[in-house]
Amino acid sequence: MKKILSFTLNGEPCEVLCEDNRSLLDLIRDDLGLTGTKKGCEEAECGACTVMIDGRPVNSCATLAREVEGCEVLTVEGLAKDGKLTPLQKQFIDKWAFQCGYCTPGMIMSAKALLDHNPNPTEQEIREAIEGNLCRCTGYAKIVEAIQATAAEMAEMAAAQKGEV
């Protein structure tokens, strides 16, 4: 039986009818049409389906839609505002941190979760933050570079803002 599920999706209130056995991944992609979040292994191994729930990166394939009742869910579509990419997204492009692109949305969500909590991570911390995101193209080096460059850029922006004040 379908029941109403209410949560916040990318900053907007969302109410949908959904079955108890619906995964958050299927809800986001198939019912809500947000296909940025990718379906990879459906085993919570590859990280392509990573989204943020209340600030934590999680595998949406191993999450029931019902679990997010009342929660804030952020998908890759929720990052850019008015068509303007975030520094993290731009750095992924500038540093060529993707090839086929399939892991990219999950990679970006894991990186965002890291930078939100730890704006100045070490390389080790970056590699640990994306340990649950498999990439079969890049060898990870470019991805790590993009995250490092984002951290540096955000630190500069913060310093500049301070200077202005």
Binding site: A44, G47, T50, R56, P57, V58, N59, A62, T63, S110, A113, E128, A129, I130, E131, G132
Partner: peptide, 9 residues
Amino acid sequence: VASTQIRHK
């Protein structure tokens, strides 16, 4: 245990 995402859940 597992990965960062799994440990967050």
